[in-house]
Amino acid sequence: MNAPQPAPETLLDERDREIIQATQKGMPLAVEPYRVLAQQLAMPEAELKERLQRMKDSGAIRRIAAIPQHYALGIRANGMSVWDVDDRLVDELGKQVGELSFVSHSYRRPRHRPHWPYNLFAMVHGRNREEVEAQVAEIEKLLGDACRSHDILYSSRLLKKTGLRLRG
């Protein structure tokens, strides 16, 4: 019951991998970006677009988007709120926490007692810690008695951030 869900696998061929390798650090910024990318890959534009669309439909691509560097954008308080929630209630409550507008990610993860009693993670972001703490107080209210303890881990420094890297 607690086993991780198996990842549904998308079958990728060499051409898909070429596309992934060419775009994992970003794609050309142009009015017609797919035309430029197709030229770089020496691939017909129609084929490139068909493959990208297929990867989007299958979930291999979550979205083709602006990926913000939130530190540089003034969103400096990045609080990982962590909660020790009753196992019988965590899935129902986790879903409710995930629906809060200020929560960017919410997951259930394994505990590592005694160092780590927490099984529910919810990332909250704000311009400062006051903003984050007000949001965490709302989560605390929602969880009520089902939560035994919680903590907020602030990130003090971004040590690395890259996209997915496929090895060639």
């Binding site: 990728l12 994992q24 083709i64 560097q69 996209g163």
Partner: peptide
Amino acid sequence: DGKLSRFGPLYNAERLGG
């Protein structure tokens, strides 16, 4: 300027079989 870390596809490693 580093305000965006990049612009492009956001891949889901698990759906790529990873």
